[in-house]
Design a protein around this nucleic acid. Structure first.
Lengths: 344, 344
DNA sequence: GTGAAAGCGCTAACAT
DNA sequence: ATGTTAGCGCTTTCAC
């Protein structure tokens, strides 16, 4: 079923059908009616590929996330989807699963599909792949990652500050050693959060011996959190406080500790990051760093829309502030943690 | 950058470039090299739209889900994505948010994009919109919904059986009245789960007075669960057991009850559905009906691939079995619930 | 082994 | 107000 079939049935030229579709007011009401009827009768559905080829847009936005199974990312996607669907965009959603190679393949596929714009949470710390996309003229906005230094639009949260809040909180609770379960150094969020945690540690050290024990894991997942718990349990003396680079890791750590009979927060205080929906209902409820997920996605989508419509627009890096939400998992430890002796 | 530019640079005709791209062995090694170099030099990226227009496939699969923020669905998507990306497909992911109208709009958009296939968890109980798609010849597989009766491929779980397991479990625990917080009757899963819960209730009634108190909510979300909790609290006498149509609702109910000072499972036993990742770590850990999420998505994707490649293939409805996972939220109530008097 | 040419379905400029 | 036409970038016969 093509525009040509519709034209034949309605007894008009195919140009007229195109006009009915794109500029209805150029067509006489009677003719328009006949064409519309013919469209209904034939069950004609416009072919986006042909439209696009002719110079139109693809009405498609590519979204590349680190992990589609992480509620933090999907909540951001919801925000983006809500603003984008208003403009009749469809999302091509891809999960890189934190693999740079997979990310590259998706970038490539998305470019071949000639997406009108891109929303990405890059794996690549140096943004080489992203720079390539931008060089090819594809409007690109970074999601949950500051793009200011690269002259890109972005919607992000101050990650260093968030981790600083978390670490500060644990030190204030009296802990002298904090284990920081962090993701790979290739992921920018992880780098920034480490920086924030270190900053808080340096500050705490002025008051008394304080230490940040960094435990790096391969991915920000529940499974990796459970593995990290094993490593934590093997430490002697065991740290009395643990902060994680995201809630999925924290959930895994919590699982691992609980399974081993270690009580949270009595034996170990635990803090997550993201404040996903279920964080408040974990056992115990999880202290976490809240990020405005939905707003992040919506803001990024708005920026992208601007960039698509006005090519020569000024790039903007929208920045949100994180917020520490204190809950049960980080109540002060019952045994004063100062008794443990560590070299700061 | 088009195939034509590459041809010019390599000093060959554009047909040869196309051959290098699609049937490299037809081209002499020397020529091939030169073309490949020219592709690299120009930074040429193939245009899917043109490819598709010429009769090729769009290498695109449409996925329409009820709720992208629900970990159950995203876990299914992961399964589907893993098998589809092997074949270089990109997913167009859409969340209907349980709105039939939004679903229709996405169906339309996906059809305009000429997706090669469709994976859908329909809102529409009668599948009218889906039937339309199928009539237009788009390979379609139902996700988490049996399509047998409609002659469609599908990957689903026996929902009636799952709910039956849940209800049975609560009756066996000694509860005589179970409140069933269920989603809208337009969603098939909800209808089936109600059927299963009723079946278990009829069976329980043979032994003693038993009742299913149905509480319908507008959507399968945490917010709606919290609202349902309010309604539960207003009931007199208050039911001693609650089962929910999914874990998000259960999480909301748990939140609502906890906030009101009602203890789970001491005052009220609670059972969810889906067994999402966080279910086991809620406070208390949530008894739930497990569904093979990842496998469901992967199976549906496999079926879709088959349907795409062999047009005249036999439709198959792959069926999985649910499994009850008993945890702390449904431990037997301390006060024997039989003391409450209800007409069964 | 390579080139020339037709055409996929559509839009937009131009002609009527 | 409507019809005609020239491509958009690519694949694919069919000659050479």
């Amino acid at each position: 079923m093509t525009i040509r079939d519709v034209a034949r049935l309605a007894g008009v030229s195919l140009g007229t059908v195109s006009n009915v579709l794109n500029s209805p007011d150029l067509v006489a009401p009677g003719t328009r009616r006949r064409v519309l009827d013919a469209i209904a009768a034939t069950g004609f559905v416009r072919n986006t590929a042909a439209h696009q080829l002719r110079g139109g847009r693809s009405r498609t936005i590519g979204v590349v996330l680190l992990d589609i199974a992480n509620p933090f990312f999907t909540e951001m996607v919801r925000g983006a989807e809500h603003v984008l669907r208003e403009k009749d965009y469809v999302l091509m959603l891809c999960s890189s699963d934190e693999s740079a190679e997979r990310e590259q393949r998706y970038f490539r596929a998305l470019e071949e599909h000639r997406v009108d714009g891109l929303l990405i949470t890059p794996v690549d710390p140096e943004l080489d792949g992203v720079a390539n996309l931008v060089a090819h003229g594809i409007p690109t906005v970074l999601l949950d990652r500051d793009g200011g230094e690269h002259g890109l639009c972005s919607a992000s949260v101050d990650d260093a500050r968030g981790a600083e809040l978390a670490a500060e909180h644990l030190f204030e609770l009296g802990h002298s050693v904090i284990a920081f379960v962090n993701g790979p150094g290739t992921i920018r969020q992880c780098v920034d959060r480490r920086e924030g945690a270190r900053r808080a540690t340096r500050r705490a050290r002025r008051l008394r011996a304080s230490r940040l024990l960094e435990i790096d894991v391969a991915a920000l997942t529940v499974e990796q959190g459970e593995r990290a718990a094993e490593r934590l349990l093997a430490l002697a003396p065991r740290p009395t406080a643990v902060m994680c680079a995201n809630d999925l890791l924290a959930l895994g750590v919590l699982r691992g500790l609980t399974a081993a009979g270690v009580a949270v927060p009595e034996d170990v205080a635990l803090v997550g990051y993201d404040d996903v929906t279920f964080a408040s209902m974990l056992s115990p409820s999880l202290t976490s760093v809240r990020q405005p997920k939905y707003e992040l996605g919506a803001a990024a989508a708005e920026l992208l829309l601007q960039e698509i419509t006005s090519p020569a627009h000024e790039h903007r890096a929208v920045r949100f502030e994180p917020e520490l939400v204190v809950r049960a998992s980080s109540a002060p430890a019952t045994a004063p943690p100062r008794t443990a002796t560590f070299r700061g």
